[in-house]
Nucleic acid binder design. Structure first.
Length: 491
RNA sequence: GCCCCCAUCGUCUAGUGGUUAGGACACCGCUCUUUCAAGGCGGCAACGGGGGUUCAAUUCUCCCUGGGGGCACCA
């Protein structure tokens, strides 16, 4: 590494005003990948300056879900670091200090307009078809006017004096040079009347103080960037590099939101998506290798990821592809790994007890092995495999109709039962031999024998291989289920 | 209304001043098989429109259209 080069420092700066969602996760991921790729630092900063909307639970949600995804941070909550605190609500004095500095230098001013007044004027502007920007009327208040407002008990905000001529350029790593006319930007608020900072202000102060080199964030912040650059300049701060990621959209092409179904990371976690599948999928939303590789190991992804190959067009979130990818990763796991991930779902549905006996654990391992190919998300296991655990599983009416309601079935089941009874040991091979012989002996087709037996044992027409499934159930249970089925014919 | 961004199969994308425009998901066949999956094989399917530049534009440029985002004492 080049010692002369500044260390790469990026941050993920969520505001805890809602559940941690896919869009946030993608932004976090790209920052994390960039940091890891460059051997830099990834910093987590919680932007909780909105006292009303911010909730501690949401901060916790971000922290837990980032951990779950495996996106570890070098500085931030829990790990701390040299540039903390990492909650903006604990840095209020810092923002105040810089706001007063700007005030003293005449680059900002107190504004006594009330929110009602502002809204009123904004509405008028819009009616006239004019841009709804602040008119700057408090820019040059006389001492007297200021005194008057104070006596009225008005609490001022601090506004930034936006130069009303010139152009501010945003040099974006992904989009190139973008220009904004300053005169289109109104004097915006730095400090609210309760002396907490606004996003644009706190962001600049913290990114500077935390020595952030690259600001990688959503596209929705692009038009905020000139405002921030103006603050950087006023404070004589060096601007970081910017990279604005395009948004993730829902199926209808609008910004992904609850309207499109589940967007929270915790939903995907609960549903049984593997963290790495989510990461891998999200990485492909706006980034690709030249060979369009789909599946990456963690090391591979870190190695191959770079900002240059990040696309600039918005990407539609496609759950089908995520499902496929998740299934792909489930299939690649060892059965015992799958089994241990499955257990919480089985417990939740009461299919297994809190305490799991070794024998039961082995059974779950075999079930995991059998169902691995069928699982797209882990939670599906309870629907796929409940019959293994429930003595009173449901016989699907359609399955009964299609496979059991045949003249020959009672006879077949009785014969099967008789022969199984005579079996010395109960292995897949023996069972297969037995059934195939039975097929030959009575001139059945394979299907005629296998299908009804599957329904008798599982209540359904689809599922794992018949022999392996039967062996997992065990001889005794198999016989019991055949009896149970036989009993159905008596009615 | 104003400002900014974006534009290749249905979706995620690769790609080039001249290509049979490639891959992946989804979808549809076939195959394997006791079923369903998984697997294997194959198929369908795209350069938004109009000007320019050029011998040649999907690629460069302009306009339009479409989509998205922003214009808060929210972030």
């Amino acid at each position: 590494m080049n010692k002369n080069k500044r260390e790469i420092r990026v941050r993920f700066a969520p505001s805890p005003t809602g559940e941690f969602h896919l869009g946030g996760a993608r932004t976090a991921l790209f920052n994390w990948l960039f940091a890891r790729h460059c051997k830099g630092k990834f910093i987590l900063r919680i932007e909780d300056t909105d006292a009303i909307r911010s909730k501690n639970d949401f901060s916790q949600s971000v922290i837990e879900n980032l951990k779950w995804l495996g996106l570890d941070w070098n500085e931030g909550p829990e790990v701390e670091g040299s540039y903390g605190p990492y909650f903006q609500s604990q840095r209020l004095q810092i923002y105040k200090k810089y706001a007063y500095k700007l005030l003293e230098e005449g680059k900002a001013y107190f504004c006594y307009c009330t929110q009602e007044e502002l809204e009123e004027r904004k509405r008028e502007k819009q009616k006239e078809g004019k841009p709804p920007k602040y008119d700057g009327r408090c820019r040059n208040l006389s001492e007297e006017e200021r005194k008057h407002f104070k006596e009225e008990g008005r609490k001022p905000v601090v506004r930034f004096k936006v130069p009303q001529e010139g152009i501010t350029y945003v040099e974006d790593l992904l989009r190139g040079k973008i220009s904004f006319e300053n005169k289109l930007i109104g004097d915006f608020v730095l400090l609210k009347s309760d002396e907490t900072p606004t996003y644009n202000f706190a962001n600049v102060i913290d990114d500077t103080l935390m020595k952030i080199t690259h600001v990688i964030r959503g596209d929705d912040h692009l038009s905020n960037t000139p405002r921030q650059i103006l603050i950087y300049q006023a404070l004589n701060f060096q601007t970081p590099q910017f990279a604005h990621l395009s948004m993730i959209l829902g199926k209808d092409g609008t910004k992904l939101s609850k309207r499109h179904g589940a967007t929270s990371i915790s939903y995907y976690r609960k549903k049984g998506y593997l963290p790495w599948a989510v990461v891998n999928y999200l990485a492909l939303l706006g980034w690709a290798t030249s060979d369009s590789q789909q599946l990456f190991s963690k090391e591979e992804l870190i190695k191959k990821f770079n900002l240059e190959r990040v696309g600039k067009n918005p990407a539609v979130f496609d759950i089908k592809k995520l499902e496929w990818m998740n299934g792909e990763y489930i299939r690649r796991m060892k059965p015992e790994e799958v089994a241990s991930l499955l257990i919480p779902y089985l417990k939740e549905k009461g299919l297994v007890k809190e305490r799991i006996e070794p024998k039961e654990k082995e059974m779950i391992r075999k079930i995991a092995q059998m169902e691995q190919n069928r699982l797209k998300v882990l939670s599906e296991i309870t629907d796929l495999a409940d019959f293994f655990f429930k003595k009173d599983f449901i016989y699907e009416p359609k399955a009964v109709e299609k496979r059991l309601n045949k003249e020959y079935v009672p006879f077949l089941l009785k014969e099967t039962k008789k022969e199984i009874n005579e079996l010395a040991s109960f292995t897949e091979e023996e069972l297969e031999d037995l059934l195939r012989n039975l097929t030959k002996k009575f001139s059945f087709s394979t299907g005629e024998v296998f299908h009804p037996l599957r329904v008798a044992l599982t209540g359904r027409t689809r599922g794992p291989g018949l022999f392996e499934l039967a062996v997992v159930l065990g001889k005794e249970e198999v016989l019991r289920r055949i009896d149970k089925t036989l009993a159905m014919f008596k009615n």
